[in-house]
Write a protein that binds this DNA or RNA. Structure first.
Lengths: 189, 189
DNA sequence: ACGATGTACTTACAGGCTTTAAGTATTTGC
DNA sequence: GCAAATACTTAAAGCCTGTAAGTACATCGT
């Protein structure tokens, strides 16, 4: 038997692809080994354990998402930036449901700090430069936007909006209009 | 050995309590059997399988959450209703993290229809009666509110807001101010 | 009161996933 | 071309799921 050429990077990417295909919850060391044509034990030379594997997928997803968001943000400002950023986020979740689920994993503080999570927050702050918000309103708005994007996409992919005929894309678009409106007109404390 | 007196209801409640203690992901048939002082196989007389058990916890959590929200909404209107509803939602998630995680489960359409999920949507609509929104803006706003509440609470409990010193309760309060503002002043299509 | 019936629970087992330890084969470097 | 390092396999223990068959307890009729 020739060697399979397993590396942490290839393993992580394969795990991410597997997550998109069969769901993040179903990504197991065994399933991944099967996909690579090796025995499960072989993978433990590259990953610490199953949790470690999942964390790696989460970190990969966060980085990919940050890259996409950065691309979307480039050269845009104000509402245009808001919409591009939000759509990058939502599109990624739709294209890569498994990776997106991974990105929602609870990471321990140091892993989170080393991940792209900070870039996400900074980009959200960058969007807000197109609006007139000073601290602490800006931080409140960062949290509101983060929650909004994640919550809407999360409920949408979980099928929570499927019981009503209203077009989900249209609701999304109008939600972004509303966010833009409230950012332009942030209520005084 | 005296009988343990296992019923689906007691089983579901115990599973929900267990979820709050050890996390929804860690609620297994084995762990639940241990908590009841019986062997795992005994539970299969009451539940179909592990997935069935989790769905029952999810349905329970959705019902409890709807009850709390209904209480919060009673006798209130406008922003007061919005804030009370939102806080009921957030407080429940904080008090019962395992149940809240369960409530986010993807349910198959018929289970979802039989669950309290519809009550949630109707209550959100009830809040919006205090604002001047007609269709399809109302549906868009329902989705926005649902996404907002879920997303904020979800990121908060996942520790996503812990990297910044700004008080999370204060951000939440200001987010509700912003939502109230945008509902009172919904942007035209 | 006591046997018959049904119900609640246990034991036994098969299969899958996780993870460690030890063994074998393949590649690399001198 | 041989030694050392590396990549992978086999083996095995532990835990979880889920089915099937067995045992003990409760309840009912008489």
């Amino acid at each position: 038997m020739a060697r399979a050429g397993v590396t942490v990077e290839r393993l992580t990417r394969a795990a991410a692809d597997l997550a998109d295909e069969i769901g993040f919850q179903n990504v197991t060391v065994s399933a991944l080994a099967r996909a690579f044509g090796v025995k499960p034990a072989a993978l433990y030379a590259h990953i610490k354990d199953a949790h470690d594997l999942r964390v790696r997928v989460a970190v990969l997803a966060l980085a990919e998402l940050a890259d996409r968001a950065a691309d979307a943000l480039a050269g845009r400002a104000g509402k245009e930036a808001l919409v591009a950023f939000a759509n990058a986020y939502r599109d990624y979740a739709k294209e890569h449901p498994g990776r997106y689920a991974a990105a929602q994993m609870e990471l321990d503080p140091e892993t989170a700090a080393a991940s792209a999570a900070r870039r996400h927050a900074e980009m959200t702050r960058a969007i807000l430069r197109g609006y007139d918000l000073s601290e602490p309103d800006q931080t409140d708005a960062v949290r509101m936007l983060g929650g909004m994007f994640h919550g809407y996409v999360s409920l949408e992919t979980a099928g929570g909006f499927r019981r009503h005929p209203r077009d989900v894309d249209a609701s999304w678009s109008r939600t972004l209009d509303a966010l833009d409106a409230v950012l332009r007109n942030w209520p005084p404390a």
